[in-house]
Write a protein that binds this DNA or RNA. Structure first.
Lengths: 223, 223
DNA sequence: ATCAAACTAGACTGTCCAGTCTAATTAAGA
DNA sequence: TCTTAATTAGACTGGACAGTCTAGTTTGAT
């Protein structure tokens, strides 16, 4: 080959990363074992070590890749509101988008792993926080600032309001999923209802008193 | 001794449990090692095994004790509102109480541990969920039902509203603490402000439109 | 004072596993 | 086709660690 990385090399690398992801997510760093990763990747143990110098390096590579990947996925769907949707519609769309991207078994397992290993690898926790919640919150804050400017929501600190909104939407389902396992992940329709209820509450507090964008608050159909 | 368990036996048992708690919380189940538990307890390894037949049994004992203990602590401070405090005062007191009980390094470490081991020991996750969030939520739901009956909040599903309230209060700080470590635990005054803001938002959505118990919503001073 | 139960130090066993080594095989670019 | 880098199976080393064993010591109830 003329310059580095033939097809086979890249393919093996991917196979190893995929296998390692499965094994690490299920067993954690200490519980995982390099022989089973090699076996699952259908590759010799030697090849694993040819690609990644140590268990720790492989682990970090897997987690960082997943963390970054998740960050990229969120926000591809709902672009910032350069359009002029009413706040309620925008917030509902964002909420549903986030819930359906984040509340998957794969990402919930990642989150459990990172939390569990956060004593051993604190930087992973910080990275997941900054690539996850913080990205979403900042995006919503930007939108809220714009909605505030055009008088669709009250005067408030956009970042603070966005933080509140974020955890009103994500708090209950993520915490349930953390402690109850993947069976704690709500169904699509539960998730939808939850998003709408969160938006309703948020706008009752931050929306305009009555006129303008926000419809009057309707306290029926709670979670 | 006349009947079982002399002082020494109980004392050793406590020493072992205390040492095990420290070691397990720091290192997790797999990362912990029985020799260091024995050493930290200032007890021989043999004695550890005389009290607890295996690492797993000791681990479960430690975690279950902590989980139950935490549940008992919450709610000792704020009794149900047999008194006739206004909703706002009651909810604020509950929020501050919960935040200050739950957001301690020790309980946050327990939570991280349980989440991290929830693949290996799923029952611990369920137990922590039922002894933690669920207890608080049900307590608030009972109170909300009463406040609804006396017309201090709107008509709503008390359990759903209590769930919303719980995660508005606990969502942001616990999630931050999970991923950012104990440095993510907010100070007493941040915690206070956060509790008040959560109550404000909650009452904007669930409180009575204007008169009665809830003061008019005031959107200044967000998180 | 006696004696049984609890405890001690520390050596020991068996298992698991990260990481290495070897010698042979395969594949792909020139 | 030739050559070189990548890969393979599997044996091997060394360390960590759960759990046991032994032989002797302390403790506390009677």
């Amino acid at each position: 080959m003329v310059n580095g990385a033939s097809k086979r090399i890249r393919r093996n690398r991917e196979k190893i990363l995929a296998a390692a992801e499965q094994v690490f997510l299920r067993a954690g760093f200490l519980g995982a074992n390099m022989d089973s990763i090699a076996e699952k990747a259908a590759v010799s143990k030697q090849t694993v070590y040819a690609h990644f110098q140590s268990k720790e390096i492989l682990f970090l590579e897997v987690i960082e890749t997943m963390t970054g990947g998740a960050a990229r996925t969120i926000g591809e769907d709902v672009e910032d509101p350069l359009d002029d949707r009413p706040v309620e519609d925008y917030l509902t769309a964002v909420a549903i988008d986030q819930l359906s991207v984040v509340l998957t078994p794969r990402l919930m397992q990642l989150r459990r792993m990172v939390i569990g290993e956060s004593e051993r690898f604190p930087e992973l926790g910080r990275s997941l926080y900054e690539n996850g919640p913080l990205v979403s919150i900042r995006r919503v804050a930007r939108a809220l600032a714009r909605y505030k400017a055009i008088g669709q929501i009250r005067d408030c600190d956009p970042l603070g309001a966005a933080t509140q909104f974020n955890w009103m939407v994500m708090g209950a389902p993520t915490n349930a999923a953390m402690l109850l396992g993947d069976s704690g992940i709500p169904s699509r329709s539960e998730l939808d209802a939850h998003a709408r209820e969160a938006v309703r509450i948020f706008l009752a507090a931050y929306g305009m008193p009555s006129g303008a964008g926000g419809r009057a608050a309707d306290p029926s159909t709670p979670t």
